[in-house]
Design a protein around this nucleic acid. Structure first.
Lengths: 231, 231
DNA sequence: GTCTATAACGAGATAGAC
DNA sequence: GTCTATCTCGTTATAGAC
């Protein structure tokens, strides 16, 4: 009994993975807007209606790809943060940034899916919220560690921004000083600005040595949230 | 004779504009990947082959939309830079950033077209390079002015980055100190990181007071390239 | 229960003949 | 420029195999 159920479950997992793999291939070739259940089925030698056993709709397949992508980049960031690298919080910050960029360069179409233009007609369900926050949570954790080690100096915070800073802090990182939390959100978005510009072609004919340029910029982002250069 | 030619030329301009307007409407509804000459023609009550007298291919229509978008955001930046606003280079920097953001919020689909995911199968021709650089040139001009007024302090430049910094400077802004040019390119990409995150939904449930948050972050970007807070 | 296949729907794109 | 025949798509209903 259990072996039959196990076999079925295994088959289901394998087919689900094959569907997502083929969908990712199509993502690369045609873009998310043109992702087609029928084409995926055709390529897999299945009939389109059979796919509905695995994904209730095209949007659910898209959601699965989005969740997978967020999880993959989030896991890469977590691994980089946990790794024994060069010591010091700023060095760890930089290595998290590098890991995110490396994942993006290795998976440009999945990166575009989650950090590029929204897919027309698709609206992300609640399921994506958790995975989408993983990279941010890594950065927050890093700031928390630095704070505990006295290796972070909160940047100045203007009075106009204080109410929003306090609300934001309470929502996403209650144990950080509001000035750090605000700077962190800005640095987080700016990190992806660097990566998107590189990946989407804005650096063509402008930046040639992308790795060294990025490393430097990532380091400055770390200092912008108050991380001490030495620690 | 000339009046007939004038009328013809006028009609051509009007129809070209109508085609682009309708294409922009479709851009908003379906996304750039699905932009279809036929659908545009149908909506305008023309037959698809007639459109080819105005745009030789779908890609040429896309290119025209891209050039228009770059020109629009570039013009907005130029206007903000030239306007008599609050004095001081940092204030002018911030007002250029605000103008870019305001344009993006007002034209989200055109923004996504130029700063979002690349359109699958489309590769931008040389024609887009000039318009694409207008915002960057505004920022470079601003840094140049600040330099002339002694209102900019070049940030530190690491030795690893120096060769690339000098190459980049020679290419895009020969009269700026390499340290400023590098910081400027980083700030430029980070500016669009802030805008893209807001526009593409990453700030949902995170940042509420977007205007004040953005203004603060833009100011920090200006200081990151060395602009003096007071001047 | 779990899956796949057939067939069909309405909507839209596309190619070619005229 | 028009028309038509033939594609694609997402999705559903249904029937039968395991």
């Amino acid at each position: 009994m259990t072996s039959v159920q196990g076999a079925r479950a295994r088959a289901r997992i394998e087919i689900t993975a094959a569907i997502k793999d083929e969908a990712r291939t199509q993502l690369a070739a045609e873009g998310a807007a043109k992702l087609s259940l029928r084409a995926v089925a055709r390529e897999l030698g299945m009939v389109s209606s059979a796919l509905y056993r695995y994904f209730p709709s095209r949007d659910d397949l898209l959601t699965a790809l989005i969740v997978d992508a967020y999880d993959a980049v989030g896991a890469a960031a977590e691994r980089a943060c946990a790794a024994d690298g060069p010591s010091g919080h700023l060095a760890r910050w930089t290595s998290v940034c590098r890991a995110v960029r490396a994942w993006a360069l290795a998976h440009p179409h999945e990166y575009a899916l989650i950090y590029g233009s929204p897919v027309p007609g698709y609206s992300a369900p609640q399921d994506t919220v958790g995975p989408a926050s993983r990279v941010g949570l890594v950065l927050i954790g890093l700031a928390r560690d630095a704070l505990a080690a006295d290796a972070i100096t909160p940047p100045p915070l203007t009075e106009e921004l204080r109410p929003e800073a306090e609300r934001l802090t309470a929502d996403v990182a209650p144990d950080l000083p509001p000035a750090v939390a605000v700077a962190l959100v800005a640095a987080w978005s700016q990190l992806f600005g660097l990566i998107s510009f590189e990946l989407f072609g804005q650096f063509n004919r402008i930046v040639e040595e992308r790795q060294v340029f990025f490393d430097e910029a990532a380091g400055r982002l770390g200092r912008a949230i108050g991380l001490a250069p030495g620690a």
